[in-house]
Design a protein around this nucleic acid. Structure first.
Lengths: 211, 211
DNA sequence: ACCCTTTGTCAACGGTGTTGACATCTGTGT
DNA sequence: ACACAGATGTCAACACCGTTGACAAAGGGT
């Protein structure tokens, strides 16, 4: 590493996250991986928060590329699924979660794409704004909830879900009849399936306001 | 404070959060508020995480009380709004976000209530499970996104939203035409309004699967 | 060759959650 | 009433964390 740049730091930061998990990313650990003094990072980023945002944006690279052009619903659906996947990969950073408006290019492109497709679909700019916020809230929420298990493989996840189902089944049937009775149905499919279902129902509701 | 208990610790912890903000709650600060050695907390909670979960559950007290009985939609709508409000008040802890199944009474009552109303509405247990997860994901996501501004008062929030709108308006109109054109419409109403809109559209979509 | 800005290094500050050893207080059985 | 045992509070310390300021080496422009 002859010379440090914002890009090179972000790159090795993502490597570190991939190896040790995102909550293990500390300035000191990153300094070690980067083979430089930890505080050298502060020559390129004002704070760790700024670094995290840059990492987050890097994860969103290409997220708006080659989206389906068949319909606005298909396009937005695919985009939201990709956003969630990117946020799942790097849970702790959760770029969009900070609530602040996009300050990086990839984030900006997301907003633009969603607003554009909604506009073409017939939403006026007020309705498009509400719809945009609704979609982002659901997408981020799903990522936040599922991120705790994102690092496990699918077999482990299935085992954990089974465990949780039996937790519900073991509740007092007098007090929690529906939880006990429906325990076998909880956590259906994969987390991806559940998100896709929620997203489709939200898109149903949004489409319903058009007619 | 003659004697420390789990309940008394949680109570003063919530006071501290109310006064200094939730991210300012440290074991040492809590120890000061509790007028005891900080480490005394570890006699009652295995870890700070366990304490946070207890605080989270305390915030959900009464969340399932006196819900509307007019319709399943009204009932679930109100419950989700309350859950979000509780999570907004204590952002950092984000009880339900951990993705784990409810381990405390108030959390369990939420699941039971939602499943019960959905069941009565005509959802079979598989559909009810999908709908339950969809509602929780949206509710948590909205809370996560809005929590960063929850500590500001409404005037400050309005000012910040105006700032963000002008950020969008200042983008390159050639590259981001919809963001620039629709900037004035972004962040419409209050965060509560935006969540209510999203929730209503999701409920629309869910109701649509019934017929 | 000069200066000046940028970049990396080092020591340190104030903060965090947590642990282990020690003392004290409290309740129970005899 | 006494002694024992467990629960509870105190204290010092550990291993981290993000961040700052002073200092040295490097690099480019005039």
């Amino acid at each position: 590493m002859t010379r440090l740049t914002r890009d090179s730091i972000v790159t090795t930061a993502i490597e570190v996250i991939g190896k040790h998990g995102s909550e293990q990313l500390s300035v000191r650990r990153l300094g070690e991986a980067i083979d430089a003094d930890p505080t050298a990072i502060y020559r390129h980023f004002r704070s760790k928060d700024e670094l995290l945002r840059a990492i987050g944006d890097r994860c969103l690279i290409g997220v708006t590329d080659d989206l389906p052009t068949t319909s606005w619903r298909e396009c937005i659906r695919e985009l939201c699924i990709r956003i969630r996947a990117a946020n799942l990969a790097q849970p702790a950073l959760a770029t969009l979660v900070r609530g602040a408006p996009p300050r990086h290019d990839n984030e900006r492109r997301i907003t633009e794409t969603i607003l554009a497709r909604l506009g073409e679909a017939g939403f006026d700019s007020a309705a498009a704004a509400f719809a945009y916020h609704a979609l982002i809230e659901l997408t981020i929420g799903s990522a936040a909830i599922d991120s705790s298990l994102a690092s496990e493989d699918s077999a482990a996840r299935a085992r954990i879900y089974a465990e949780w189902r039996s937790d519900y089944a073991a509740l007092d049937a007098g007090m929690f009849p529906r939880s006990v009775g429906g325990a076998a149905s909880l956590y259906p499919g994969t987390a991806d399936d559940r998100f896709a279902y929620a997203l489709d129902r939200l898109l149903d509701g949004l489409a319903g306001t058009l007619s």
